[in-house]
């Protein structure tokens, strides 16, 4: 087997998931300026839902659709019930609310699913595809294809369409957006629905290849944040951020071992943060 090929396959699969998480996080951040620490919970909620529904003997397709719907409703509920009445609070308080929502979600999932990990069958079954000295399962191909397509579509939607531009304007300057007649609440609703849907999609595609438990959310939030930070919180670059995180993890592991992964990747991350902000003199408040 060719280690480089296998690293590319593995990196692409992880990158697809990271891209989905990152773009969801960025969409929500772009409309609310709030870093949503409960974002990874959409993944956990979706994955646990699919696992539980599939465990009841229902078809895996229905289980997957249930996962997408529940993940989307979950994200919308967090936004509408918890965040919407409190938009006047300082950003740091809003971030703390998302953290509290993540804790509560973890508690609910533990009661619903117990502490043992769950999984559910693959949507795409068949022998792995062998190419160039590596192997990738059909589900993995689907993960890469659907994951990146969805992430690219959302990113194009944000950058190219009028509605997408409205979404972004909401975050740049909510007051000005209101003045321009943009319904900022509706924009945030749409953003959270997109974010939830993508988190659920990531779970439906990835969990059959691994497993999920009640506490999977925080880890996914972190990976989303890292990918989003690599992308400079830019919707146009989210896919690049996810892909580069996935591939660099895979290559560092291949050539330097898993123990080198965190120190190397996060040293790179710090470097990227410093580089991205090299021209900003003061905490982003450059308007004088």
């Amino acid at each position: 087997m060719n280690p480089v090929t296998q690293a590319i396959y593995s990196g692409l699969m992880a990158g697809g998931v990271y891209a989905l998480l990152a773009i969801g996080l960025i969409v929500a951040f772009r409309t609310s300026r709030v870093l949503n620490l409960a974002h990874g919970e959409t993944f956990a909620v979706g994955g646990v839902t699919a696992g539980l529904v599939a465990g009841m003997g229902v078809s895996k397709f229905i289980a997957s659709i249930a996962a997408l719907v529940v993940a989307m409703l979950y994200a919308v509920a967090v936004d509408q019930i918890l965040m919407k009445p409190r938009r006047h609070l300082p950003i740091s308080s809003l971030i703390l609310i998302t953290l509290a929502a993540a804790f509560l979600t973890r508690g609910v999932l533990m009661v619903a699913a117990g502490v043992d990990p769950l999984s559910f069958p693959r949507l795409f079954v068949g022998p792995p595809i062998r190419f160039a000295g590596g192997a990738i399962p059909l589900q993995g191909v689907a993960l890469v294809a659907i994951g990146f397509t969805a992430a690219i579509c959302v990113s194009l939607f944000l950058v190219r369409t009028p509605l997408g531009r409205k979404l972004r304007a909401t975050a740049e300057n909510p007051d000005a957006a209101e003045l321009l007649g943009i319904d900022t609440d509706r924009m945030r609703l749409i953003a959270s629905a997109i974010a939830g849907l993508l988190g659920g999609l990531a779970a439906v595609l990835l969990v059959p290849l691994t497993s999920i438990d009640y506490q999977a959310g925080l880890g996914m939030t972190l990976r989303g944040i890292i990918a989003a930070a690599l992308a400079g919180m830019s919707p146009a670059l989210a896919v690049v951020g996810g892909l580069s995180l996935g591939l660099s993890e895979a290559f560092v592991t291949t050539y330097f071992g898993a123990l080198a992964q965190d120190p190397v990747i996060f040293a790179i991350l710090i470097g990227v943060a410093v580089w991205q902000t090299r021209k900003i003199r003061f905490g982003g408040s450059q308007r004088a």
């Binding site: 870093l35 972190l222 944040i225 890292i226 930070a229 919180m233 996060f266 040293a267 991350l269 710090i270 943060a273 410093v274 991205q276 902000t277 900003i280 003061f282 905490g283 982003g284």
Partner: peptide
């Protein structure tokens, strides 16, 4: 590092 970048940098 401004705002979120400080959070990400220290996280790293």
């Amino acid at each position: 590092l401004p705002g979120m970048y400080l959070a990400v940098g220290t996280l790293g």
